[in-house]
Amino acid sequence: MRAKNIILVIGIPFSLWLINHFISNPSIFSPYILQIIVLMGINAILAVSWDFISGVTGQFSIGQAGFMAIGAYSSAFLTLKYKVPFLPAILFALILSAIAGFIVGIPTLRLRGDYLAIATLGFGEIVRVAILNMPSLGGATGLKGIPIYSSFFSVYLALAITLWFCLALLKSQPGRILLSIREDEIASQMMGIDVVKYKVFAFTFSAALAGLAGALYAHWTSLVHPDSFSFMKSIEIILMGVLGGMGTIYGPAVGGMLITLLPEGLRLLLEQNPLLYQNKDFVRMLFFAILLLFFIILRPQGIFGKREAKG
């Protein structure tokens, strides 16, 4: 047990570091492929962050893009304007988005189901519109020229730590408690569980992870724009989670990767046909919509979810 953990803690970063050298070499992998691989990792973190609050704790959030935006803008602002190094900037992004999660968590605790979903949707839009109207954050033009600090190594190390933390929580008592809140809030109160405290914790933790993904994203694309964190982004994150299997943590991670990869495959197909290529954004959304419907009807538990036995 101990030995296995030590091997993992040393082995994973080391192998990521080795792969990084190999994968970042433009003569082996084209920058286009590297771009897709890194975005796959970032989206996997996002999908896991959504799964933690919605799949595990059962509090449906349509505002993950808002937390992501806070992480992206706050870290980019520091590295761009104040030349802060990457790691402190990421920490700042984590803390700020966690605070946002905490603040959103408190009032939404009185809300359930649809009402909570609408409140988080509203939060995401508030963040986007607020950024749009802040000249110091670039307003509608966004922030440009953010130093490219993210790499395959940093993104996948962040993903590994995210998965480690979420899975460790999921299989221990805190995770069981969060699952019980999803299953039956009243019964878990009667079992002595402080439901309010755990829901706020789940929101804070989930927001911090989304903020982390945002910070990595900003320092990879070198450009952040309010439109990157729109309502559609939140929907895309939900799609990743549902596709992978809600409440499993690793399922959404895979879902996030697939949803990043699929449009690229689609693009290759569309390039054959000029008419479809002209409307490629429309075709992409149509494709996602059909995919989501397909899963909800035929496999509602997602790729990795367990089929539920009927009582």
């Binding site: 221990s172 805190p174 408690i177 019980s180």
Partner: peptide
């Protein structure tokens, strides 16, 4: 009002509170 999608054993364990700090499982 059981936690219907959790195992029988987990249903029981849930009622036992949190006997260790919440970060303990993170660092094993």
């Amino acid at each position: 009002r059981l936690f219907s999608r959790l195992t029988v054993e987990d249903n029981i364990k849930l009622a036992m509170g949190l006997p260790y700090p919440a970060f303990a499982p993170l660092f094993s």
